[in-house]
Every structure is written in C-alpha cells, then in structure tokens.
Amino acid sequence: MTLLEVDDVTLRFGRVAALDGVSFTVAAGEFLAVIGPNGAGKSSLFNVLSRVYRPSSGAVRLAGEDLLALPARALAGRGVARSFQNLGLFGHLTALENVLVGRHHLMRAGVLAGGVMLGRARSEERTHRAAAREALAFVDAESAADTPVAVLPYGVQKRVELARCLAMEPRLLLLDEPVAGMDQGERAEITDLIHRLHAERALTVVLVEHDMGMVMRVAARIVVLDFGHVMASGTPAEVQADERVIRAYLGEPVEVAS
C-alpha cells in the first residue's frame, strides 16, 4: 500500500527551480532515503513534505489525502512526525515534558477539565506520562527525563527529539539530516537508533541525509536528487553502482598526467 505519494512536485524561487518535477512513492512500512550533493534540493523537498514550503505545482498525498491542503500544524494529527535539522526542542522544558508535548494531539481532556485535572483528565495524564517515559527508554535517554533539555549533550538531545517523534505515534516519520554535526561515535549510535525505530516500531521513514555511509546502512530504497531532479532511485546497491551518482558525488574521473 502506498502511504506517501510525491507527484510531479516543482518548487520555484523566482526563476530558480529548487525542485523540478520530482515524483516518487513510499510504501507503508518502507524506509526511503533522499540523498544528493549540496544544493540538490533535499532541504527544499523536506520543507515541502513538512508543509513549510508550498510547491509551485504538483501534489503530495498521504494515504490518498491531499497533504498540501493542510497547514503544517495539522500534520501531527494526520500521523506525520518530523525531526529538525537543528533540533526543535523546548530548551527550558525537561526531556520528559518535551516528549509529552508530542502527545498533545492524542490527549482528549478539554481546557477546563484538563486545567483542574479532574477525573478522566488525571488518568489520561498518567497514561501519557507512561508512554512518554517508554519512548525515552526506547531511545536510551530515560535517565535524562527530569533534566531541562538545554543542558543535555547534543547527542542526547537528538535522542530526546526522536523519542518525541516516536511518542507522537506517527504513521510517517520525516527525518531531516539527523546526524548532521555529529562525530563518528554519535553518528553510529543515532544511525542504529533510527534503524531500530524503523524495524521495531514498524514506522514508515523518509530520511533526508547528506551522509552516504549512513544512508547505505539504514535505507531499503534511495532517491538521489541532483539540481532538483530525481537522478536515480533504487536499492543502495543499485544506486551505488550508478555511474551518474558516482559522478555527482565524486566528480568526473580526471586523467592524471605523469
């Protein structure tokens, strides 16, 4: 079953086309990565999917529903969770509170009942706190639960952000360069965590990433963007063997004069 459908999406800034007729689909449960050199349109594509940019033409559908008709703030309710390239955490809030915010759209208590914590609101609160703790445990950041996230190391903050995505109980997880700015050790850990999120929680994942090595380890299928076009797509092995991809990433082979 197709969960996400990107259909002939074009995004222009003035006369520059950041995306030019991009089409691909993501099946439910699939792990798709979008890669490409700097300036290929990865971030533009991510911003279209997360409803930050409106494309000049084309359609994006989630399980058949027109995603472009929805504002960004409605996405969580439709089962779309996203991570931010530079973390979208709430600095003064604790890790647990950060994760709990992600469950707001799942909570039912109204402003007044929720305000005074009466009856059902109280038991609902307990359920959601337990779920938030469980998400923190899944990303191995439970010990940070009661610490304001601003004072946590970057790698732990990323884990908290992923825990928040998980706690949102999404159908589709959008990850924007999750290992950018990390050292080798952190990269390996977060890559492993993302792999587990997909494998153990049956999430559909769209990963936009610059780091080829990371993508090859986790993605089942890869879409390669170059200058706003889909240059290639296929399994990691197919993409790695593609002449055009090698050229785009490594440049033209050059005769070295002896």
Partner: peptide, 13 residues
C-alpha cells in the same frame, strides 16, 4: 519556547 516546533509536533498553537 519554539512556536514552529510546537506546531510541528501537534500543539494547537
């Protein structure tokens, strides 16, 4: 703390 992030995670801003 962050209105954009709040909206993205489902807070009815």
């Amino acid at each position: 703390a962050d209105e954009e992030a709040a909206g993205a995670v489902g807070v009815p801003v």
